[in-house]
Design a binder for these strands. Structure first.
Lengths: 154, 154
DNA sequence: GGATAAAATTATATATACCTAATAACCATT
DNA sequence: AATGGTTATTAGGTATATATAATTTTATCC
């Protein structure tokens, strides 16, 4: 899916993902839940809901519970996939903490396209396989990185 | 340098980089050159110049040539560094074309922080060294990725 | 040196994305 | 069914980032 060509702003993508997560965990979403998960005020959510609704990504009627349309769900699922691939790379390979990997993935997922995402995914898989079969490359890198940090800081 | 804490928007960062590149290649920058290199209208550039100037990142007076302040140059140089590290990773390791690597780096450079940039840089160095000293890992990955694409497409 | 072209700026408008404050709707309890 | 609390929306304001159209300034060229 070519999300970049769908004319959905980065913020709208973030709202969509938040709503997707809430729908997965609670079956639906509400203004307040979304506001809390995004760290914004409810008034901001209401506006975002209007634009997502205009783009037919969510089912939204004033003062009713919010769900994703089929299209919205497809987009959200694709974003979630990108997020996972990137955060796995950052955490499992580069060795960032889960939290840092997650935060960075939130930002990177919107700016990589389908093909780049696939390359990342394949690369993570490749390195894991290599590390299992032969020398533990991933561990070797992470150790060398830690050593370097220690040399730098004291 | 913690660019994320400097309160410079992504677009302003892009303008700063464009101006930096133009200053490197031409010694200074003009509204029209910037507009062309950014793909926007001159009127948009003028506004961006005002905000960059307000933040003391550029030396700007109406209808005079534009240069970077010391601070602006520091920020721009740091952004250029991030750009290079990311595009090297995407091109040399993941195997994207130069052009695609460059385009993606333009977007990613703004959303990674100092520490993540360092990890990327170290990782690229590590893999290159490993690939030189032992088995050609990078080549092996790129070959396996190409093979996979061929299997998929025909 | 005046006409014209190019470059830059201003004025005005649109869209996104956030905020606070005010209001409206819903619901829960008595 | 009135009241009070929670949730949601509207109204109005700010900031960014773009655009077009009009104007102003600067440069060029006969």
């Amino acid at each position: 899916m070519k999300i970049q060509e769908l004319n959905i702003s980065l913020n709208q993508q973030n709202y969509l993902e938040a709503i997707y997560e809430l729908c997965v965990t609670h079956g639906h979403a509400h203004t307040k839940m979304i506001a809390e998960s995004m760290g914004v005020r409810m008034a901001s959510v209401t506006e975002a809901l209007r634009s997502l609704s205009a783009k037919e990504l969510i089912n939204y009627e004033v003062r009713k519970t919010i769900t994703l349309t089929k299209h919205g769900e497809d987009v959200a699922r694709e974003l979630a996939k990108r997020h996972k691939i990137i955060s796995d790379f950052l955490h499992q390979i580069l060795g960032c903490s889960m939290q840092r990997a997650d935060e960075a993935a939130c930002r990177i997922e919107h700016v990589i396209d389908e093909k780049l995402k696939d390359r990342f995914a394949e690369f993570v898989q490749f390195l894991k396989k290599e590390s299992e079969q032969g020398e533990d490359l991933i561990g070797k890198f992470q150790k060398s990185y830690q050593d370097m940090l220690e040399r730098q800081n004291g």
